[in-house]
Amino acid sequence: MKSFVVHTGLVAPLDRANVDTDAIIPKQFLKSIKRSGFGPNLFDAWRYLDKGEPGMDNTRRPLNPDFVLNAERYRGASVLLARKNFGCGSSREHAPWALDDYGFRCVIAPSFADIFFANCFKNGLLPLVLTESKMDRLFAEAAAFPGYRLTIDLPRQRVVKPDGEEWEFDVDPFRKDCLLNGWDDIGLTLRHADKIRAFEMARRAEQPWLFG
């Protein structure tokens, strides 16, 4: 997994609540057996005017001029501002894969759906929670100042604004360590292989009907 330490990037605002993973990456693109290549279909139904299908040449499709990510000023954005309950719905990890493939490194929202939140950490994508009032300020400032950039400093757990103001954010210490170091969860867990085996043996003795 790629690590996340300090990131500075252009900010794009997606001003709607309850953005679900069907909207982030529609189901017709889940037929791929790969982890990459989902970026061109991120927010497909909102981003393009035609109906997207796998295998289309996305560079030739008509863009929806009203969709925020299509605005010239947000080209190359790597920090996404979102509203509450971002990533609700399906467990598809294709959603963080699509965000990552598009170029986002961090999504900032007042709340996230649980499965999406967990999936982000497995892909070097930081889901960051700030209060509604702080989100309102970020949305207003990102709209007011073209080229608005934020720095996300994970070691210090700070969002640094262009005016120098810093906001602290929370992150689970274990997840933070994994992100900072780009650690592979599986490798970490397998350090406890003996404990897992011992647990399994005891369980097999107690509830043999769960095995075989």
Partner: peptide, 15 residues
């Protein structure tokens, strides 16, 4: 419900 990375994690570690 879990994501695909977690599917892989469960397959590899049963946890």
């Amino acid at each position: 419900g879990i994501g695909t990375s977690e599917v892989e994690h469960v397959m590899a570690t049963q946890c």
